[in-house]
Design a protein around this nucleic acid. Structure first.
Lengths: 343, 343
DNA sequence: TTGAAAGCGCTAACAG
DNA sequence: CTGTTAGCGCTTTCAA
């Protein structure tokens, strides 16, 4: 391994001088600077960031923790975060918790033990509280992303889940739907609660009572609850539309509908939260409430770096980004549904 | 910051003893072990991995570098890699080069300066050679993923691009297509070259000569070359089918076709390499040569860890995974194409 | 403008 | 079974 001493020796200076050249601190004569720089280039020397961070207590490295690396919402967000980090001179490393508190815990340990400068943190759910408190206790700056966690006060950037859900339900009720099922994430996740609130409010506006039998609560990932869907679809007064609380749920829902021989939207309408970037790109099928995923990442990252660099306001900031209704083909009027389910 | 000395003092032992408890090395009486462990738990002590890696020259941390975090092939691969890493007791951090040599260079620097134990490396292209050589010089074990790089010998796990392309072209020629366009990635990328070989071979088998005017070479990401598509589609003897060399290109192609008012497959057939996991899940539309993305990650990670732990064969290993033709709706017979483009 | 000494938090080697 | 010493690669302080 090439160390700063190798460079120093070869350039006939002390290690300290080399350090000054690398970090552009202190005064150095142009002559020595150039000589040292040349040796550095020649040997391809790269400082050991472990040694450096040990003394500096800084790494110039940031972490982004997301909850589902296969979800396009998070990957687009990751791009935004990375672009912003690079623009401000930080390196970014990603972690993926897969909506799993245990994996999340491991990442928090990694973060804590590597002393990154800050974390953009999409919590798995309310039980992420412990993890966030740990970060707080160790003075690792963080910005919470996408989901809030009761009990913790910090910078937050999130979407307006309530409003997005409301837009979708309003749209469905305007199409004439009254029996609208909700396939939701876990109640332990703030966005799931808020989307359910928006759902309830949308129904209320239309004078429809929430029917608990039309609400299925599961996880935001890997939906394949056939029994649950069976129950939803085989009750006396069947739903004519389904609101899936995120894109991954929508995929599961549609898959299970297909499996039962039901067509979307001819037999039943489906809408969801979050867009499916790639799928929607060439096949604008799903009607969705889309969130500005890239901005989540970019703005969240700027908030984080502002916080780290001390340029943020003292008080915790909360930024809420709106969703946008994108009307496509997966939901239609009751009349458009050739064969109402209830018949 | 809580250090090993804080623990030592509180438990009335030396730092060395704490270290032994943490790392389960050396002999320690059960009594002291328990006492120390209790203090560790109580204070929530987490060792500083920078300090540790400085002396150990190991981090128990691995890197995965992918070239497009929004491409489902890579995100599914990432899951496989992560699962395998965790199963073997390593932590994994992700990097994303966005098919950009410059970003890739930054990640290599990060890798080099943080001294991770190894890297699963999907190169941006042939010019990644420098970066890989740097890793090699510094003795950072790596496995090359998905794409080979001329000039470097190492463990490799890749798909059979040639065979996959051949399957697709055979399928198209069996449907009766003769004028098949290729929208390919950059010639600087091994998979693009191999897919073009498979394309050429498929045409040869069918007695069709490759027409350079039907080949468009671009990048694997963000395809939106309207002028190129225009040229492809407006020549005298128009193509009746397009082979997109990866999923992202297929999306761009279909988008541009739509923009020109062309329907797929009614007006023109489209097939591509790599599946679109989410999109295909509920809308099995694109006919593709799918690669076992999860296995790429999982097997590649095992190769890497075997190499790190010295349990791999001395000689570099090369694993080639086959692709699988998934016939869906985006390509059809010429007769099925209601209005041949040439008419 | 340059360098010597000390120490960041940890562990290997050895001594007790 | 436990502790002392030294040093991993780097930078801060302060003296030259």
């Amino acid at each position: 391994m090439i160390t700063i001493y190798d460079i120093a020796k070869k350039a006939n200076v002390s290690a300290m001088t080399v350090s000054k050249v690398i970090n552009q601190t202190g005064r150095i004569s142009t002559a020595t600077r150039e000589r040292v720089q040349q040796v550095i280039d020649e040997l391809g020397y790269i400082p050991n960031s472990n040694a450096r961070s040990l003394v500096l207590q800084r790494t110039q490295m940031l972490s982004l923790l997301i909850t589902d690396i296969t979800n396009p919402f998070y990957t687009t967000l990751a791009r935004g975060a990375e672009d912003a980090a690079n623009a401000r001179g930080y390196r970014l490393l990603f972690g993926n918790s897969d909506e799993d508190y245990n994996k999340e815990k491991n990442y928090v340990e990694t973060i804590l033990s590597t002393r990154v400068d800050g974390v953009l943190f999409a919590p798995a759910g309310d039980r992420s509280l412990d993890h966030l408190q740990q970060l707080h206790e160790r003075n690792i700056p963080f910005v919470i992303l996408d989901r809030t966690v009761p009990g913790i006060t910090s910078d937050v950037i999130a979407g307006d889940s309530r409003q997005g859900a409301l837009l979708l339900i309003r749209y469905l009720t305007e199409l004439g739907h009254r029996r609208i099922a909700l396939v939701n994430g876990s109640s332990e996740v703030s966005t799931a609660r808020l989307r359910e609130e928006g759902y309830a409010e949308g129904l209320r506006e239309a004078g429809v009572k929430v029917d608990p039998k039309l609400v299925l609560r599961t996880g935001y990932r890997d939906f394949s609850d056939e029994a649950g869907m069976e129950q939803l679809l085989t009750q006396p007064d069947k739903p004519t539309a389904i609101f899936a609380a995120n894109n991954m749920l929508a995929i599961g829902v549609i898959r299970l509908l297909r499996k039962r021989g039901l067509r979307v939207p001819e037999d039943i309408s489906v809408v969801c939260f979050d867009d499916l970037d790639l799928a929607s790109a060439f096949d604008p099928f799903l009607t969705v409430a889309a969130q500005p995923a890239y901005d989540f990442g970019a703005k969240g990252m700027h908030m984080l770096i502002d916080r780290i660099e001390g340029t943020a306001p003292t008080d915790p900031q909360m930024v809420i980004l709106p969703s946008e209704l994108r009307i496509r083909a997966s939901a239609t009027t009751l009349i458009g549904q050739s064969k109402p389910l209830g018949s």
